[in-house]
Measured scan of single mutants.
Amino acid sequence: ALNRGDKVRIKRTESYWYGDVGTVASVEKSGILYPVIVRFDRVNYNGFSGSASGVNTNNFAENELELVQAAA
């Protein structure tokens, strides 16, 4: 299972961040479909780089994520 702070690569092909590595911000335990919230260094097309207006978190299912580096 994934944990907060883990570095993960995104495998959801239609995602803006496909192939990117993000950090797990939190994992919901309530049984929702996309329980893993991942935070990225770059914002998506809703904002400009360096601006706070873009979105830099997204929810994924565990099977859409590949663990790159476990949290220390």
Rank of each mutant, 00 (worst) to 15 (best):
A1L: 13
A1Y: 13
A1M: 12
A1C: 14
A1I: 11
A1S: 12
A1V: 13
L2T: 02
L2V: 06
L2N: 01
L2R: 01
L2M: 05
N3P: 00
N3I: 14
N3M: 14
N3D: 06
N3T: 14
N3C: 15
N3R: 14
N3S: 12
N3Q: 13
N3A: 12
R4G: 04
R4I: 13
R4M: 09
R4D: 04
R4L: 11
R4Q: 12
G5H: 04
G5T: 02
G5W: 04
G5N: 04
D6V: 04
D6P: 02
D6N: 03
D6M: 05
D6A: 05
D6C: 10
K7D: 02
K7M: 10
K7P: 02
K7Y: 06
V8S: 01
V8L: 03
V8F: 03
R9K: 09
R9Q: 04
R9N: 02
R9I: 07
R9W: 04
R9D: 02
I10P: 02
I10R: 02
K11W: 14
K11T: 10
K11E: 03
K11Y: 05
K11V: 06
K11C: 12
R12W: 04
R12L: 05
R12C: 05
T13G: 05
T13C: 13
T13D: 04
T13F: 13
T13I: 15
T13P: 13
E14F: 10
E14I: 08
E14P: 05
E14R: 08
E14D: 14
E14M: 10
E14T: 14
E14C: 14
S15W: 02
S15A: 01
S15Q: 01
S15F: 03
S15T: 02
S15Y: 02
S15N: 03
S15H: 02
S15M: 01
Y16S: 05
W17R: 03
W17Q: 01
W17I: 01
W17K: 01
W17P: 00
Y18D: 02
Y18F: 09
Y18S: 04
Y18Q: 02
Y18R: 02
Y18G: 01
Y18N: 03
G19W: 05
G19R: 05
D20I: 08
D20T: 07
D20L: 09
D20F: 09
D20H: 07
V21P: 01
V21E: 03
V21T: 07
V21N: 01
V21Q: 03
G22T: 02
G22D: 02
G22I: 03
G22K: 00
G22A: 03
T23I: 12
T23F: 06
T23H: 04
V24A: 00
V24S: 01
V24N: 00
V24K: 00
V24L: 01
V24E: 00
A25E: 15
A25L: 15
A25V: 15
A25P: 02
S26Y: 13
S26H: 15
S26D: 11
V27F: 12
V27M: 05
V27H: 08
V27C: 04
V27R: 02
V27E: 01
V27W: 04
E28C: 14
E28R: 10
E28V: 12
E28D: 13
K29Y: 09
K29P: 11
K29E: 11
K29Q: 12
S30F: 09
S30R: 11
S30C: 08
S30L: 07
S30G: 11
S30M: 07
S30K: 11
S30E: 12
S30A: 11
G31L: 13
G31W: 12
G31Q: 13
I32H: 10
I32T: 13
L33M: 10
L33H: 08
L33F: 08
L33Y: 04
L33I: 07
L33C: 11
L33N: 09
Y34H: 12
Y34L: 10
Y34E: 05
Y34T: 06
Y34V: 03
Y34R: 13
P35H: 11
P35V: 13
P35S: 13
P35N: 14
P35C: 15
P35F: 15
V36H: 01
V36L: 03
V36T: 00
V36C: 04
V36E: 00
I37E: 08
I37K: 12
I37R: 12
I37F: 07
V38R: 00
V38L: 00
V38F: 02
V38D: 00
V38Y: 00
R39Q: 10
R39V: 14
F40S: 00
D41L: 12
D41M: 09
D41Q: 13
D41V: 11
D41W: 09
R42S: 05
R42M: 04
R42W: 06
R42I: 05
R42T: 06
R42A: 05
V43A: 06
V43K: 07
V43S: 06
V43Y: 15
N44V: 08
N44P: 06
N44T: 05
N44K: 13
Y45T: 15
Y45A: 15
Y45K: 15
Y45F: 10
Y45V: 15
N46K: 05
N46G: 09
N46S: 09
N46W: 08
G47A: 09
G47K: 05
G47M: 07
G47R: 03
G47Q: 08
F48K: 06
F48N: 14
F48C: 15
F48A: 15
F48G: 15
F48V: 14
F48T: 15
F48L: 11
S49L: 11
S49P: 15
S49K: 06
S49Y: 09
S49F: 10
G50M: 07
G50E: 09
G50T: 08
G50R: 00
G50P: 08
S51P: 11
S51W: 06
A52W: 10
S53K: 07
S53F: 11
S53P: 10
S53M: 11
S53W: 08
S53I: 13
G54K: 05
G54P: 07
G54F: 06
G54E: 06
G54S: 05
V55S: 10
V55M: 08
V55G: 05
N56P: 04
N56K: 05
N56A: 06
N56M: 07
N56H: 06
T57W: 14
T57A: 08
N58K: 07
N58Q: 15
N58F: 10
N59D: 05
N59G: 13
N59Y: 09
N59F: 07
N59P: 08
F60V: 01
F60D: 01
F60S: 00
F60L: 02
F60K: 02
F60H: 01
A61Q: 07
A61H: 08
A61M: 10
E62R: 14
E62I: 13
E62A: 12
E62L: 12
E62V: 15
N63Q: 09
N63F: 12
N63G: 08
E64H: 02
E64D: 05
E64Y: 02
E64A: 01
E64W: 01
E64S: 00
L65C: 05
L65R: 03
L65I: 04
L65A: 02
L65M: 02
L65D: 03
E66N: 01
E66I: 09
E66A: 05
E66T: 06
E66F: 04
E66C: 06
L67A: 02
L67N: 01
L67K: 05
L67T: 02
V68F: 04
V68L: 09
V68Q: 03
V68T: 04
V68I: 10
V68R: 04
V68G: 00
Q69R: 09
Q69C: 13
Q69N: 09
Q69V: 08
A70Q: 10
A70E: 13
A70F: 10
A70I: 08
A71K: 08
A71V: 10
A71R: 06
A71F: 13
A71T: 08
A72P: 12
A72E: 14
A72Q: 12
A72K: 12
